Simulated scan of single mutants.
Amino acid sequence: MSVIKPALQHPELIAYFSGANNYSWLYFRNGEKRLLAKPISYLETKLPDFIRVHKTILINPSYVKSLHQPPRQKMAGEIRLDSGEVFPVSRRRWQQVAEFLQDRLGPKKQEAEVASEKVNVAPPLLIAQQEEEKALSIIVSTEDEQNALLSKHAIEKKWPAYQVHTILHSNHLPDMLKQLPQPNYPSLLILDARTDTLERMNTVQRLKEDPQLGAIPVVLLVSPTDQSVTDGYKHQANSVISMPDGYMLFANIIERVCQFWLRTVALPGSGE
């Protein structure tokens, strides 16, 4: 299946494209790359927020760390990415690139910094106390930063009423949630058990054994094996999803999970 369409639906995961005749290399922020059967000129029309710095390079501006002027006349400038990679900025594109980045990165600097920050943000308890006006929340626990970013963007784009908190580890969740008033409990917990499987399973069990926390819906993402699915339900997860690797697949599944749990079923306190 072509990766072009799903990739373009999540440009926040893309660092840059490198053109090669009628093909282009797509470089994700996590270091992965894919060969696309499209020229870079086609991708430029599909991603107007990206900037073409060279005839062969199309860059996500939120991934730019710095821009350096040409050292001498008739020489190319340089653009440096957060990853440390450096690309030339052609002389004829220099003014356009400089103005584009000034216009785009000025108001979006804070947004770009948020998009590239580590997954292990402030604990949900602290966030819930600081953002009382946004009581509806979802917690996603995964060790994969790209999946965490995908989850946050996918959920908050389609369900803006929900605040998404992403965390690396889940073993502290039961203790932290017990300190919250019940109306501030998250509407949904999504635990990626494809890594740290034992920790995730123990977290589910502890949550479900608690008379109050047990009402919080818990969705467990597991490796595609019968044993993983069986173990998930033995630990009383509300839903267990067999899930292979793949960022675009992850985003689609998260959207379908939220569509079911946030729109179809009746949750405690929803009044539906």
Rank of each mutant, 00 (worst) to 15 (best):
30 N>I: 01
213 L>V: 01
155 I>A: 00
6 P>G: 03
53 V>H: 00
160 P>W: 09
97 V>Q: 03
62 S>G: 11
140 V>W: 01
166 T>P: 01
127 I>Y: 01
47 L>D: 02
226 D>M: 12
32 E>K: 14
270 S>T: 15
236 Q>S: 10
41 S>E: 12
249 L>G: 07
92 R>S: 12
79 I>S: 05
132 E>L: 09
24 S>H: 11
198 L>C: 02
258 C>R: 03
224 P>H: 09
174 P>Y: 02
111 E>T: 08
160 P>V: 00
211 P>S: 07
16 Y>P: 03
113 E>W: 09
214 G>E: 06
15 A>C: 10
263 R>W: 08
48 P>C: 04
128 A>D: 07
33 K>M: 09
252 N>V: 00
83 S>D: 11
76 A>H: 11
157 K>P: 02
202 N>Y: 13
96 Q>C: 04
89 V>T: 11
14 I>M: 05
267 L>H: 06
161 A>M: 12
102 Q>M: 10
157 K>R: 15
98 A>V: 12
42 Y>V: 08
181 P>A: 10
35 L>W: 02
176 M>V: 00
5 K>E: 11
1 M>S: 12
222 V>Y: 03
152 K>I: 14
71 P>A: 14
43 L>Q: 02
195 T>L: 12
259 Q>L: 13
16 Y>R: 15
264 T>F: 02
160 P>K: 08
262 L>Y: 06
116 S>K: 11
250 F>G: 06
74 K>Y: 05
122 A>E: 11
268 P>Q: 05
246 G>Q: 05
26 L>I: 00
19 G>C: 12
109 K>Y: 06
11 P>E: 09
204 V>Q: 05
87 F>Y: 15
111 E>K: 08
97 V>E: 04
125 L>Q: 07
189 L>H: 05
71 P>K: 13
149 L>E: 07
253 I>S: 03
29 R>W: 00
69 Q>N: 13
136 L>V: 00
211 P>W: 08
35 L>S: 02
188 L>D: 05
48 P>M: 05
14 I>E: 02
44 E>M: 02
169 H>C: 04
240 V>Q: 07
127 I>Q: 00
181 P>Y: 02
267 L>R: 14
228 S>M: 12
244 P>T: 15
244 P>Q: 06
268 P>L: 05
132 E>D: 00
198 L>I: 14
272 E>Q: 15
236 Q>D: 10
186 P>C: 06
212 Q>Y: 14
208 K>D: 05
48 P>W: 02
9 Q>G: 01
79 I>F: 01
238 N>Q: 09
62 S>N: 12
144 D>E: 10
24 S>W: 13
231 D>I: 15
264 T>L: 01
14 I>T: 07
265 V>I: 15
70 P>T: 14
195 T>P: 06
195 T>K: 15
184 N>G: 07
174 P>L: 05
42 Y>F: 15
241 I>H: 05
73 Q>K: 15
175 D>G: 06
39 P>L: 08
90 S>N: 07
16 Y>W: 13
268 P>I: 01
213 L>H: 06
